[in-house]
């Protein structure tokens, strides 16, 4: 009987790690193409004039299709920020050697803030209202990573 009990499986590790093929849809596709040309594209609501970046199709407030495309940035203002002392990798919290700066940035011409990394400055200098500028990956990789990060203007 004792032998049998030891055979009971108490724990089984089953990673939930499938590959999915997400279609980004025409809006994100055009946004990615724009990044390749160092342009940040947004869509505008014909009714409330909301300018959304990354672009999306529907304005849920007005029940309208956002079909007008506008270019925004590359400069913008820090709206909100946090300094990360950890990173979360696959759900596990890991300490960072040097802090990472994360900011909500309202790009010039946009009304919806964009979450992005800010680099090249001391954590204590990161403040609301700070002007920052987009840095693009060169040469472009045709992915969302083409908008690499933001840096302080000047």
């Amino acid at each position: 009987m004792a032998d049998k009990l030891e055979r009971v499986v108490v724990e089984a590790q089953v990673p939930l790690d499938y590959t999915y093929n997400y279609r980004v849809g025409p809006y994100i596709e055009r946004y990615i193409k724009g990044l390749g040309d160092k342009k940040i594209l947004a869509t505008k609501c014909p009714q409330c004039s909301k300018v959304a970046v990354p672009p999306r199709k529907e304005c849920g407030v007005c029940n309208k299709i956002m079909d007008e495309w506008v270019e925004v940035g590359p400069e913008g203002v820090v709206d909100n920020y946090t300094v990360g002392h950890v990173k979360i990798e696959k759900g596990l919290v890991e300490n960072l050697e040097s802090p990472a700066l994360l900011a909500m940035i309202t790009l010039d011409g946009a009304t919806v803030p964009l979450l992005a990394e800010v680099k090249g400055m001391a954590p204590t200098d990161l403040k609301k209202g700070l002007r920052v500028k987009a840095v693009f990956t060169d040469p472009a990789e045709d992915s969302l990573a083409d908008l690499s990060h933001f840096e302080q203007v000047g």
Partner: peptide
């Protein structure tokens, strides 16, 4: 395969 839209665009 709806390659032309993403998930939420298809729902809409």
């Amino acid at each position: 395969k709806r390659k032309d839209v993403n998930i939420v665009e298809m729902m809409s």
